[in-house]
């Protein structure tokens, strides 16, 4: 099985503080991976480093064999926590924007998803609620046929129905060449769709296992184990 994401001794400091400390990771293609940790544990830092939105203090990241840059941006679809949509385009225009810049973007898929979520492509981004904007963003990201999807807290602020839709989209979008990494602190909701989990605590990886290994060995859910590991 080939590797899609590799981190070697990856460290990121902000000021004097370690946000990530000597992280070693190896993630294969065709997996759905949960990056789990409480707020401030380094999840977002790790994802930003993979997107070249931050530069490592030391160590390295390889995505499909390349350091973060133009080549990796072509194969990575990223959903940040922030809403990055501008306030002047229509939904159909932002779809064209994505199509212009990403060769792996599938407009048909995007319009299909918009229809299913009852979003009018002629609507202006400006007039949308925060929840709808988040849905549009997810549609844009999932409409790419990328090799690595990095979803930062995709289910954080959405209602249960939308959450189910997101999980459904991730499963139906699955292919054996692409890996989905999603960060969250709401584990029980997504546990079933995950295959591998990574526990991250204070900038360090404390556990990497498959969900079934945990359930088999510990006799408890990942959620229950998480509560134990990260007990305050």
């Amino acid at each position: 099985m080939s590797t899609i994401l590799e981190c070697k001794n990856l460290t990121k400091k902000f000021g004097g503080k370690n946000a990530l400390e000597a992280v070693d990771l190896n993630i294969s293609r065709g997996r759905i991976v949960g990056l789990l940790g409480p707020n401030g544990s380094g999840k977002t830092t790790l994802i930003k480093l993979c997107n070249e939105l931050l530069t490592p203090t030391s160590g390295e990241i390889l995505i499909g064999g390349y350091h973060p840059g133009i080549k990796t941006k072509k194969i990575v679809a990223y959903l940040p926590e922030n809403t990055y949509l501008n306030d002047w385009m229509k939904v159909s225009e932002i779809i064209n924007f994505f199509k212009d810049f990403y060769t792996d973007f599938n407009s048909e898929k995007a319009f299909d998803m918009l229809k299913r979520l009852n979003i009018d492509p002629q609507d202006k981004l400006k007039t949308m609620s925060k929840g709808t904007k988040e849905k549009v963003q997810l549609i844009l990201v999932m409409s790419r046929e990328a090799q690595l999807y990095l979803l930062d807290e995709p289910i954080g602020g959405v209602d249960p129905a939308a959450r189910d839709y997101i999980l459904d989209t991730i499963i139906s979008n699955y292919n054996e060449n692409a890996t989905v990494i999603l960060s969250t602190h709401l584990i029980s909701d997504i546990e079933r769709i995950l295959e591998d989990i990574i526990f991250i605590k204070e900038g360090q990886i404390v556990l990497t296992k498959t969900v079934d290994e945990i359930r088999d060995e510990e006799g408890k859910s990942v959620d229950a184990l998480f509560r134990e590991v990260f007990k305050c």
């Binding site: 070249e52 939105l53 941006k73 990223y78 990055y84 810049f101």
Partner: peptide, 13 residues
């Protein structure tokens, strides 16, 4: 700003 999350993850130098 927030739009930077989109602009800087485009495959553009």
């Amino acid at each position: 700003g927030d739009e930077g999350y989109l602009m800087f993850t485009l495959p553009v130098h």
